[in-house]
Design a protein around this nucleic acid. Structure first.
Lengths: 151, 151
DNA sequence: CCCATATACGTTGATATCAACATTACTGGG
DNA sequence: CCCAGTAATGTTGATATCAACGTATATGGG
Protein backbone atom coordinates (compact mmCIF):
# COMPACT_ATOMS: atom_id res chain seq x y z
CA UNK A 1 0.00 0.00 0.00
CA UNK A 2 2.98 2.32 0.56
CA UNK A 3 5.99 3.02 -1.57
CA UNK A 4 9.44 1.98 -0.40
CA UNK A 5 10.97 4.49 1.99
CA UNK A 6 13.87 5.09 -0.36
CA UNK A 7 11.52 6.37 -3.00
CA UNK A 8 9.55 8.56 -0.61
CA UNK A 9 12.79 10.14 0.60
CA UNK A 10 14.19 10.79 -2.83
CA UNK A 11 14.55 14.12 -4.50
CA UNK A 12 14.75 14.21 -8.28
CA UNK A 13 18.11 15.18 -9.73
CA UNK A 14 16.42 17.85 -11.82
CA UNK A 15 15.38 19.62 -8.61
CA UNK A 16 18.95 19.47 -7.37
CA UNK A 17 20.16 21.05 -10.58
CA UNK A 18 17.59 23.82 -10.29
CA UNK A 19 18.62 24.62 -6.69
CA UNK A 20 22.31 24.51 -7.53
CA UNK A 21 21.97 26.78 -10.52
CA UNK A 22 19.62 29.31 -9.00
CA UNK A 23 20.52 29.49 -5.29
CA UNK A 24 21.61 33.07 -4.63
CA UNK A 25 23.05 32.04 -1.29
CA UNK A 26 25.39 29.56 -2.94
CA UNK A 27 26.23 32.00 -5.73
CA UNK A 28 27.04 34.70 -3.18
CA UNK A 29 29.18 32.33 -1.09
CA UNK A 30 31.12 31.20 -4.13
CA UNK A 31 31.76 34.75 -5.26
CA UNK A 32 32.73 35.87 -1.77
CA UNK A 33 35.14 32.98 -1.28
CA UNK A 34 36.76 33.53 -4.67
CA UNK A 35 37.16 37.25 -4.02
CA UNK A 36 38.59 36.68 -0.56
CA UNK A 37 41.10 34.21 -1.89
CA UNK A 38 42.13 36.56 -4.68
CA UNK A 39 42.70 39.51 -2.33
CA UNK A 40 44.30 37.27 0.30
CA UNK A 41 46.92 36.18 -2.21
CA UNK A 42 47.51 39.70 -3.48
CA UNK A 43 47.80 41.12 0.05
CA UNK A 44 50.01 38.32 1.32
CA UNK A 45 53.23 40.41 1.06
CA UNK A 46 51.72 42.91 3.51
CA UNK A 47 50.85 40.25 6.10
CA UNK A 48 47.13 40.94 6.34
CA UNK A 49 44.13 39.22 4.80
CA UNK A 50 41.29 40.72 2.81
CA UNK A 51 39.02 40.65 5.83
CA UNK A 52 41.62 42.34 8.00
CA UNK A 53 42.11 44.97 5.31
CA UNK A 54 38.39 45.74 5.28
CA UNK A 55 38.31 45.91 9.06
CA UNK A 56 41.33 48.19 9.36
CA UNK A 57 40.00 50.40 6.59
CA UNK A 58 36.66 50.74 8.34
CA UNK A 59 38.50 52.01 11.42
CA UNK A 60 40.38 54.72 9.53
CA UNK A 61 38.07 57.59 10.42
CA UNK A 62 38.31 60.93 12.23
CA UNK A 63 36.56 59.78 15.41
CA UNK A 64 36.95 56.27 16.88
CA UNK A 65 34.01 53.90 16.29
CA UNK A 66 32.25 51.56 18.69
CA UNK A 67 32.53 47.80 18.27
CA UNK A 68 28.84 47.45 17.56
CA UNK A 69 28.73 50.10 14.87
CA UNK A 70 31.67 48.51 13.06
CA UNK A 71 30.00 45.10 13.23
CA UNK A 72 26.90 46.59 11.59
CA UNK A 73 28.95 48.31 8.93
CA UNK A 74 30.71 45.07 7.99
CA UNK A 75 27.54 42.99 8.41
CA UNK A 76 29.29 40.58 10.70
CA UNK A 77 28.24 39.28 14.06
CA UNK A 78 29.33 41.34 17.05
CA UNK A 79 31.13 38.36 18.58
CA UNK A 80 32.89 37.65 15.30
CA UNK A 81 34.31 41.14 15.34
CA UNK A 82 35.54 40.65 18.90
CA UNK A 83 37.42 37.57 17.74
CA UNK A 84 38.79 39.28 14.64
CA UNK A 85 40.21 42.13 16.68
CA UNK A 86 42.46 39.87 18.73
CA UNK A 87 45.18 39.09 16.17
CA UNK A 88 45.23 42.71 15.01
CA UNK A 89 45.52 44.02 18.58
CA UNK A 90 48.23 41.47 19.27
CA UNK A 91 50.18 42.88 16.34
CA UNK A 92 49.66 46.44 17.52
CA UNK A 93 47.64 47.56 14.50
CA UNK A 94 44.67 48.78 16.53
CA UNK A 95 43.59 49.33 20.11
CA UNK A 96 40.28 49.32 21.96
CA UNK A 97 39.49 51.62 24.85
CA UNK A 98 36.43 52.06 27.04
CA UNK A 99 34.31 55.02 25.98
CA UNK A 100 34.75 57.73 28.65
CA UNK A 101 31.13 58.75 28.13
CA UNK A 102 29.59 55.26 28.38
CA UNK A 103 31.47 52.47 30.09
CA UNK A 104 29.57 49.81 28.13
CA UNK A 105 31.02 50.99 24.84
CA UNK A 106 34.39 49.93 23.41
CA UNK A 107 35.97 52.44 21.05
CA UNK A 108 38.22 51.02 18.34
CA UNK A 109 41.10 53.02 16.95
CA UNK A 110 43.94 52.40 14.53
CA UNK A 111 47.48 52.79 15.79
CA UNK A 112 50.07 54.50 13.63
CA UNK A 113 51.28 51.01 12.71
CA UNK A 114 47.75 50.21 11.59
CA UNK A 115 47.62 53.33 9.45
CA UNK A 116 51.00 52.47 7.95
CA UNK A 117 49.67 49.02 7.12
CA UNK A 118 46.79 50.60 5.21
CA UNK A 119 49.14 52.86 3.31
CA UNK A 120 51.22 49.83 2.32
CA UNK A 121 48.18 47.76 1.31
CA UNK A 122 46.31 50.43 -0.63
CA UNK A 123 48.24 50.16 -3.93
CA UNK A 124 47.72 46.40 -3.91
CA UNK A 125 44.02 46.83 -3.30
CA UNK A 126 43.76 49.36 -6.12
CA UNK A 127 45.51 47.14 -8.64
CA UNK A 128 43.57 44.02 -7.68
CA UNK A 129 40.26 45.81 -7.62
CA UNK A 130 40.82 47.49 -10.96
CA UNK A 131 41.62 44.13 -12.54
CA UNK A 132 38.36 42.68 -11.23
CA UNK A 133 36.22 45.61 -12.27
CA UNK A 134 37.78 45.54 -15.72
CA UNK A 135 35.89 42.43 -16.75
CA UNK A 136 32.57 43.25 -15.17
CA UNK A 137 29.86 44.70 -17.42
CA UNK A 138 28.57 47.14 -14.77
CA UNK A 139 30.34 47.25 -11.38
CA UNK A 140 28.00 49.88 -9.94
CA UNK A 141 24.98 47.80 -10.79
CA UNK A 142 26.55 44.76 -9.12
CA UNK A 143 27.34 46.75 -5.98
CA UNK A 144 23.73 47.89 -5.83
CA UNK A 145 22.51 44.32 -6.20
CA UNK A 146 24.88 43.11 -3.48
CA UNK A 147 23.63 45.86 -1.19
CA UNK A 148 20.10 44.57 -1.74
CA UNK A 149 21.19 41.08 -0.71
CA UNK A 150 22.90 42.43 2.40
CA UNK A 151 19.88 44.49 3.45
CA UNK B 1 63.18 68.76 6.06
CA UNK B 2 60.79 65.83 6.54
CA UNK B 3 57.18 65.73 7.58
CA UNK B 4 56.18 64.12 10.88
CA UNK B 5 55.83 60.32 10.67
CA UNK B 6 52.16 60.49 11.59
CA UNK B 7 51.44 62.51 8.49
CA UNK B 8 53.50 60.33 6.21
CA UNK B 9 51.61 57.26 7.46
CA UNK B 10 48.20 58.81 7.18
CA UNK B 11 45.60 57.95 4.64
CA UNK B 12 42.94 60.56 3.87
CA UNK B 13 39.46 59.75 5.10
CA UNK B 14 38.13 60.35 1.59
CA UNK B 15 40.23 57.44 0.33
CA UNK B 16 38.82 55.23 3.06
CA UNK B 17 35.30 56.16 2.04
CA UNK B 18 36.07 55.37 -1.58
CA UNK B 19 37.47 51.94 -0.70
CA UNK B 20 34.59 51.16 1.65
CA UNK B 21 31.96 52.14 -0.88
CA UNK B 22 33.47 50.52 -3.92
CA UNK B 23 35.28 47.39 -2.68
CA UNK B 24 33.62 44.45 -4.40
CA UNK B 25 35.32 42.05 -2.00
CA UNK B 26 33.69 43.75 0.99
CA UNK B 27 30.35 44.03 -0.79
CA UNK B 28 30.46 40.34 -1.68
CA UNK B 29 31.41 39.34 1.87
CA UNK B 30 28.61 41.40 3.35
CA UNK B 31 26.06 39.95 0.96
CA UNK B 32 27.31 36.41 1.53
CA UNK B 33 27.21 36.77 5.31
CA UNK B 34 23.72 38.25 5.27
CA UNK B 35 22.43 35.52 2.98
CA UNK B 36 24.04 32.77 5.05
CA UNK B 37 22.52 34.16 8.23
CA UNK B 38 19.09 34.41 6.64
CA UNK B 39 19.12 30.83 5.37
CA UNK B 40 20.71 29.57 8.59
CA UNK B 41 17.81 30.99 10.60
CA UNK B 42 15.20 29.66 8.19
CA UNK B 43 16.79 26.20 8.09
CA UNK B 44 17.32 26.00 11.83
CA UNK B 45 14.26 23.73 12.40
CA UNK B 46 15.86 21.15 10.13
CA UNK B 47 19.17 21.13 12.01
CA UNK B 48 21.43 22.02 9.10
CA UNK B 49 23.01 25.30 8.03
CA UNK B 50 22.92 26.99 4.65
CA UNK B 51 26.40 25.72 3.83
CA UNK B 52 25.50 22.19 4.80
CA UNK B 53 22.36 22.44 2.66
CA UNK B 54 24.43 23.47 -0.37
CA UNK B 55 26.89 20.69 0.26
CA UNK B 56 24.26 17.99 0.68
CA UNK B 57 22.41 19.25 -2.38
CA UNK B 58 25.57 19.11 -4.46
CA UNK B 59 25.92 15.44 -3.51
CA UNK B 60 22.40 14.50 -4.61
CA UNK B 61 23.34 13.10 -7.99
CA UNK B 62 23.07 9.79 -9.86
CA UNK B 63 26.75 8.85 -9.51
CA UNK B 64 28.84 9.66 -6.42
CA UNK B 65 31.28 12.55 -6.80
CA UNK B 66 34.91 12.87 -5.75
CA UNK B 67 35.93 15.22 -2.97
CA UNK B 68 37.96 17.39 -5.31
CA UNK B 69 35.20 17.83 -7.85
CA UNK B 70 32.76 18.91 -5.16
CA UNK B 71 35.28 21.39 -3.77
CA UNK B 72 35.60 22.92 -7.24
CA UNK B 73 31.86 23.07 -7.68
CA UNK B 74 31.39 24.91 -4.39
CA UNK B 75 34.53 27.04 -4.91
CA UNK B 76 35.85 26.08 -1.50
CA UNK B 77 39.27 24.83 -0.58
CA UNK B 78 39.73 21.08 -0.72
CA UNK B 79 40.76 20.95 2.94
CA UNK B 80 37.74 23.02 3.96
CA UNK B 81 35.49 20.45 2.38
CA UNK B 82 37.26 17.67 4.29
CA UNK B 83 36.49 19.52 7.51
CA UNK B 84 32.89 20.25 6.53
CA UNK B 85 32.22 16.60 5.84
CA UNK B 86 33.01 15.51 9.39
CA UNK B 87 29.90 16.74 11.22
CA UNK B 88 27.67 15.50 8.40
CA UNK B 89 29.31 12.09 8.40
CA UNK B 90 29.04 11.95 12.17
CA UNK B 91 25.30 12.51 11.84
CA UNK B 92 25.00 9.83 9.16
CA UNK B 93 23.88 12.18 6.40
CA UNK B 94 26.60 11.19 3.99
CA UNK B 95 29.43 8.71 3.62
CA UNK B 96 32.76 8.67 1.85
CA UNK B 97 34.25 5.57 0.28
CA UNK B 98 37.46 4.92 -1.58
CA UNK B 99 36.95 4.81 -5.33
CA UNK B 100 37.35 1.14 -6.40
CA UNK B 101 38.94 2.32 -9.65
CA UNK B 102 41.46 4.75 -8.10
CA UNK B 103 42.44 4.39 -4.46
CA UNK B 104 43.46 8.05 -4.22
CA UNK B 105 39.91 9.21 -4.84
CA UNK B 106 37.24 9.55 -2.16
CA UNK B 107 33.71 9.21 -3.44
CA UNK B 108 31.04 11.11 -1.51
CA UNK B 109 27.50 9.84 -1.33
CA UNK B 110 24.33 10.84 0.48
CA UNK B 111 22.74 8.31 2.80
CA UNK B 112 18.98 7.88 2.84
CA UNK B 113 18.97 10.07 5.96
CA UNK B 114 20.81 12.70 3.96
CA UNK B 115 18.25 12.52 1.19
CA UNK B 116 15.44 12.78 3.73
CA UNK B 117 17.11 15.88 5.16
CA UNK B 118 17.09 17.47 1.71
CA UNK B 119 13.43 16.63 1.24
CA UNK B 120 12.64 18.28 4.57
CA UNK B 121 14.74 21.36 3.84
CA UNK B 122 13.62 21.95 0.27
CA UNK B 123 10.31 23.75 1.04
CA UNK B 124 12.15 26.09 3.41
CA UNK B 125 14.75 26.85 0.78
CA UNK B 126 12.04 27.53 -1.81
CA UNK B 127 10.14 29.93 0.41
CA UNK B 128 13.25 31.78 1.58
CA UNK B 129 14.71 32.00 -1.88
CA UNK B 130 11.47 33.24 -3.43
CA UNK B 131 11.24 35.98 -0.81
CA UNK B 132 14.75 37.16 -1.64
CA UNK B 133 14.28 37.07 -5.40
CA UNK B 134 11.03 39.00 -5.03
CA UNK B 135 12.77 42.24 -4.25
CA UNK B 136 15.63 41.94 -6.71
CA UNK B 137 15.32 43.78 -10.03
CA UNK B 138 16.90 40.99 -12.08
CA UNK B 139 17.98 37.78 -10.26
CA UNK B 140 19.38 36.16 -13.40
CA UNK B 141 21.58 39.15 -14.08
CA UNK B 142 22.88 39.07 -10.51
CA UNK B 143 23.65 35.36 -10.76
CA UNK B 144 25.60 36.02 -13.95
CA UNK B 145 27.57 38.80 -12.27
CA UNK B 146 28.32 36.60 -9.25
CA UNK B 147 29.56 33.88 -11.58
CA UNK B 148 31.95 36.39 -13.10
CA UNK B 149 33.32 37.22 -9.64
CA UNK B 150 33.75 33.54 -8.84
CA UNK B 151 35.55 32.83 -12.10
C1' DC C 1 17.17 56.10 45.46
C1' DC C 2 15.75 51.38 43.71
C1' DC C 3 14.45 48.23 40.57
C1' DA C 4 13.04 46.48 36.00
C1' DT C 5 14.41 46.80 31.47
C1' DA C 6 17.30 47.64 27.77
C1' DT C 7 21.98 48.10 25.82
C1' DA C 8 26.89 46.92 24.83
C1' DC C 9 30.01 43.72 25.20
C1' DG C 10 32.66 39.24 26.61
C1' DT C 11 33.06 34.00 26.66
C1' DT C 12 32.36 29.42 25.06
C1' DG C 13 31.53 25.74 21.83
C1' DA C 14 30.73 24.28 17.26
C1' DT C 15 31.57 24.84 12.51
C1' DA C 16 33.96 27.16 8.43
C1' DT C 17 38.06 28.72 5.86
C1' DC C 18 42.56 28.35 3.95
C1' DA C 19 47.89 27.83 3.61
C1' DA C 20 51.64 24.75 4.43
C1' DC C 21 53.15 20.38 4.83
C1' DA C 22 52.80 15.26 4.58
C1' DT C 23 50.99 10.89 2.72
C1' DT C 24 49.38 7.66 -0.50
C1' DA C 25 48.47 6.15 -5.10
C1' DC C 26 48.61 6.39 -10.07
C1' DT C 27 51.34 6.96 -14.53
C1' DG C 28 54.66 7.06 -18.01
C1' DG C 29 59.65 6.54 -19.47
C1' DG C 30 63.38 3.68 -19.33
C1' DC D 1 59.87 -3.70 -13.09
C1' DC D 2 61.58 0.79 -11.11
C1' DC D 3 61.57 5.39 -10.49
C1' DA D 4 60.48 10.20 -11.09
C1' DG D 5 56.75 13.05 -11.53
C1' DT D 6 51.95 14.02 -10.91
C1' DA D 7 47.45 13.71 -8.67
C1' DA D 8 44.11 13.22 -4.78
C1' DT D 9 43.62 13.51 -0.29
C1' DG D 10 44.74 13.92 4.91
C1' DT D 11 46.70 16.80 8.96
C1' DT D 12 47.83 20.88 11.51
C1' DG D 13 47.63 25.64 12.92
C1' DA D 14 45.68 30.08 12.51
C1' DT D 15 41.79 32.89 11.68
C1' DA D 16 36.64 33.54 10.77
C1' DT D 17 31.72 32.89 11.80
C1' DC D 18 27.75 32.69 14.65
C1' DA D 19 24.31 31.13 18.48
C1' DA D 20 23.68 30.76 23.32
C1' DC D 21 24.68 32.36 27.52
C1' DG D 22 26.59 35.56 30.95
C1' DT D 23 28.19 40.25 32.83
C1' DA D 24 28.41 45.08 33.37
C1' DT D 25 26.41 49.55 32.53
C1' DA D 26 22.88 52.89 31.44
C1' DT D 27 18.01 54.51 31.72
C1' DG D 28 13.47 55.44 33.15
C1' DG D 29 9.43 54.69 36.35
C1' DG D 30 8.00 54.74 40.88
Amino acid sequence: MSLPVALADDLPFTVTLKVRDSCLCLHAQRAARAMARRFDIALKPTGITSGQFSLLMSLNRPAPASLGSVASLLAIDRTTLTANLKPLQRRGLLESVVDPGDARVRLLRLTSAGRAMLVAALPIWEATHAAIEAHLPDPDRLRADLDLLAA
